[in-house]
């Protein structure tokens, strides 16, 4: 259930930003969740729905943007697209991929008033 900790992290960020950027309500939250990140987007959505009541995000809509998994193949030297950490290189079939992108878990943008 670490999705619950992450959902709390999102609300904490909203509170901080509300004070810094002077807004009272959040209408839409755009989250960027990489395909190789350590969170399941639907679980995170479930947890946020559960804890956002009585907060400044009570009525907020949640938009989740999936960012693609990216890696660098140490065998053929090419940047490649991967869906899982254990994928082989789609170019050369090699098994030595270093992940370079798709691990993000971020609050990207808010629509506020």
């Amino acid at each position: 259930m670490h999705e619950m900790s992450l959902a709390e992290g999102v609300l904490r960020l909203l509170d901080e930003q509300a004070a810094a950027q002077r807004f009272e309500r959040v209408l839409t939250i755009w989250l960027e969740i990489g395909e190789l990140s350590t969170v399941d987007p639907e679980s995170l959505r479930f947890c946020l729905e559960a804890i956002k009541k009585d907060t400044l995000a009570a009525g907020a809509k949640l938009e989740i943007i999936r960012t693609p998994g990216q890696a660098f193949c140490m065998d053929c030297g090419k940047p490649v697209r991967v869906a899982q950490r254990y994928d082989s290189c789609p170019e050369c079939g090699g098994g030595s991929l270093q992940v370079t992108g798709g691990e993000e878990m971020r609050v990207k943008e808010l629509e506020v008033e």
Binding site: S5, G9, Q21, E109, L110, V112
Partner: peptide, 26 residues
């Protein structure tokens, strides 16, 4: 607001770029 053309008295929604990691506090 987000649309840039709201009428006075109506919702003044605006966009805020955050770009913060959810685990930033930890």
């Amino acid at each position: 607001g987000a649309a840039g053309a709201h009428l006075p008295g109506l919702s003044q929604a605006r966009m805020v770029k955050i770009e913060r990691d959810i685990l930033g506090h930890n």
